[in-house]
Design a protein around this nucleic acid. Structure first.
Lengths: 266, 266
DNA sequence: CTTGCATTTCCATCTGTTGGAATGGGCGAG
DNA sequence: CTCGCCCATTCCAACAGATGGAAATGCAAG
């Protein structure tokens, strides 16, 4: 007679058990649905969404209808699927136009990128990834510079993420490291060493180095204003010369720029 | 104490009048809160949000907490207010990277903007505004071109919006016109004439013209693919010469580009 | 036409959400 | 420094509406 177990789907919503954080379940779920749309899976059917979020098909169907009504999802009837709608672009636009940090940082970043012919990026942490607020890509030809934002990169493999790890609270750092240990059991020993080195490097020199993508060497440094971690700045370039030389070339521009941003944003 | 926003959002949810439109109220409300953050009001306290959305303070407080937990809002403790969080940038990024329309349109738009030294934009309708998917701003100095997206412009005053009006369904057009008549009682007679002219122009010549901002003349044309309205394309430039001359200069590039985009996006 | 799969709707259950009122906290005026 | 104001948060009982399973519908391929 007892209900067997709805623990799978209900479990997700039950995270309010510990402590009190008045969380609206429907809203949470709706946002998880939006978050399921990410580069590589920009077109999802109700079934895909149900699978990725752990929600029941019926619930997904209703929530997607609501999101379509709100304009944040569009249905592609041919593919029986949804994609994100144009109104989400307005959220970005509002977010960016309201950010005083970006207002002061972007011109300085452009300046540094042009002066040293390097890429410069600014990111914050979101869950288990870093999100670029702004990324200025320097390109030799025609001084073409492309600016992207919203791109996500993994914390554990990038200079950005490791710099964040170095300056976040011990609790968050330990929690995240435990998470990664399970996620990357394969290369964990190697990875662990790299993380420890990066964290030590940030503490000693103010920056750390990583090469996540082949031939791209990146340095990152945290920006702290009034004792509060604000964001992570990085500088990178594509090259085949030895990383050590790149570090020597990048570290001063990076630290200098970080100082200027911190000063201007105060 | 009128609450136009409330009636709008309720209206959407209440379309279950004729049977069924499973709308999740909490999710709708949460999204209305996000939508309340727009250029000009990027920093809102719970009170402001309650006022703008017509929700009770208690409800707003709970929903904002949920949104903060999800990362879509950030609290600014100093100002006792919220602003949009960085993760919304990822939604834009995903939306853009999944849009096959943008993939084909952006290079063509850049090409046309450079070749004719004009601004080119692509937009869709969202509620009572047009939202730019992409906007290539041509600038003489150093061929500096700035690309923005997510910006919103009013339907009734812009070439983009009027071109949309001309090709949308009669029901939506009539509904919107009724809405504008109430919103702009002041200049309604003048506006009505302009709207009718624009609509006739789109039907006869395929485009319409408007100067919303001083010294900026814009033309717009709808892009229809397989009988389905997809988006609106516009071309504009800043000038002091007579509008008629500008129209002559812009109309061919605009219509040509629209054709190429429609062809490539099929 | 039938078959098969995915989505949507129906329905009874009951959880989670709601607004008003009480409480808590921060800030400025005095 | 204290007081008083204002805004945000929490509490509470009431109940609207969200939920998952099952049935129905829709769609496409065979």
């Amino acid at each position: 007679m007892e209900k067997p177990r709805k623990s799978t789907s209900r479990g997700v919503g039950r995270q309010k058990v510990r402590g009190h954080s008045p969380a609206n379940r429907s809203l949470q779920r709706g946002i998880e649905i939006l978050r399921a749309f990410r580069p590589g899976s920009e077109v999802l059917g109700n079934g895909d969404i149900a699978e990725r979020t752990g929600l029941s098909r019926a619930t997904v169907s209703r929530l997607t209808q609501t999101l379509v009504g709100a304009g944040y999802l569009e249905r592609d009837t041919a593919l029986r699927a949804y994609r994100l709608g144009a109104p989400v672009l307005s959220l970005s636009h509002s977010m960016r136009s309201g950010s005083s940090l970006l207002a002061v940082a972007t011109p300085l970043m452009l300046e540094t990128a042009m002066a040293h012919k390097i890429n410069v990026g600014l990111a914050v942490r979101d869950r288990d990834e870093m999100v670029y607020l702004e990324s200025v890509r320097y390109s030799a030809r025609a001084s073409l510079r492309k600016v992207v934002s919203g791109q996500r990169v993994p914390i554990e493999l990038t200079s950005l993420g490791r710099a964040w790890l170095a300056v976040t609270s011990a609790a968050e750092r330990d929690g995240f490291i435990a998470h990664v240990r399970l996620k990357r059991t394969q290369h964990w020993p190697q990875l662990k060493v790299e993380l420890e080195r990066a964290i030590a490097s940030v503490r000693r020199y103010g920056y750390c180095m990583a090469t996540w993508q082949p031939e791209v060497v990146a340095l990152a440094t945290p920006i702290v204003i009034e004792g509060r971690l604000v964001c992570i700045l990085n500088a990178s370039l594509t090259t085949t010369v030895r990383p050590q030389e790149v570090v020597a070339a990048l570290k001063n521009p990076l630290l200098e720029l970080a100082k200027r941003i911190a000063l201007a944003a105060r």
